[in-house]
Amino acid sequence: MSFPYSFGRQLGGAHCHCSEQRIFAKYFPEQAGNGQKDFFCNNANAALCYRDWQRLRFNEDLTGLEDMELAQRLVREGGAVIYVPEAAVYHYHQESWPQIQRRFEREAIALQRIMPHIHVSALDALRYIASSVARDLASAHRAGTLASHALDILRYRWQQYLDVYKGNHEHRKLSHAEKEKYFFPE
């Protein structure tokens, strides 16, 4: 018998990127049941019964999103993931731009293994960049911080979705190389 994998709300603080604060607001809203689905989970603020942890453990072969993959297996077994917004924490990445770039690419590679049916095309990435930038800029404008956050918003969303696209296609490059090695005559 599995017990719930619970996770709490995450907030970005004053030194958090404007775009990242909007990501937190999307995935960690003030109300439970307001966007959380299936096996979405984040271990930066989570709890899992020790017995389930011993049995399931994180998949160490993944490049990220190990929390979601564990939750996916738990849900497949009949377990549940529960969001507890009252259990809020501040979450800071404090990453350089290359670290941000690598994080999004690693997570996209992992998501491809967790949910192989998800494919992000170049057109998808451009559409995501445009819509996210527009919404982030509008949010910054409403907050009166547009002038100080505009370039950061552009760079953050560009890095995010360019690297999501790259990571989502990494398995295809590896698959092509393996296919050529196997099928192409010497």
Rank of each mutant, 00 (worst) to 15 (best):
G8Q: 06
G8C: 06
G12D: 09
G12L: 11
G13K: 11
A14V: 13
A14C: 12
H15D: 14
S19Q: 08
E20R: 07
F24G: 09
F28T: 07
P29R: 07
P29W: 03
E30P: 01
E30I: 06
E30W: 04
E30Q: 09
Q31C: 11
Q31R: 13
A32P: 05
A32K: 05
A32L: 08
G35I: 10
G35C: 10
Q36H: 10
K37M: 14
D38F: 14
F40I: 11
N43L: 09
N43A: 15
A44Q: 14
A44C: 14
A47N: 10
A47V: 12
L48C: 06
Y50N: 15
R51D: 15
Q54D: 14
Q54G: 12
Q54T: 13
R55F: 15
R55D: 14
R55L: 15
E60I: 10
D61F: 09
L62E: 05
G64N: 12
E66A: 15
E66F: 04
E66W: 05
M68F: 08
E69W: 11
L70C: 09
L70W: 03
Q72C: 15
R73I: 14
L74T: 08
L74F: 13
V75T: 14
V75G: 11
G78Q: 10
I82N: 02
Y83C: 07
E86L: 02
A87S: 02
V89S: 06
H91S: 12
Y92E: 13
E95V: 10
E95Q: 13
W97I: 07
P98V: 02
I100Q: 01
Q101P: 00
Q101G: 00
A108G: 05
A108P: 01
I109T: 05
I109F: 03
R113D: 10
M115L: 15
M115Y: 12
H117R: 15
V120L: 03
V120Y: 03
A122N: 12
L123P: 01
R127I: 01
R127Y: 04
I129K: 02
A130L: 02
S131Y: 00
S131K: 00
V133M: 01
A134T: 03
A134Y: 01
R135F: 01
R135W: 00
S139M: 04
A140W: 02
H141Q: 12
A143N: 12
A143D: 15
G144Y: 04
T145D: 08
T145W: 11
L146F: 11
A147N: 04
A150K: 04
L154A: 06
L154G: 05
R155F: 03
Y156M: 01
Y156D: 00
Y156I: 00
Q160N: 03
Y161M: 04
D163P: 00
D163L: 05
V164T: 09
V164A: 03
G167A: 06
N168A: 07
N168Y: 01
R172T: 08
R172K: 12
K173Y: 07
S175T: 11
H176F: 06
A177T: 00
E180A: 04
Y182L: 12
F183L: 11
F183R: 09
F184K: 06
E186I: 02
E186K: 06
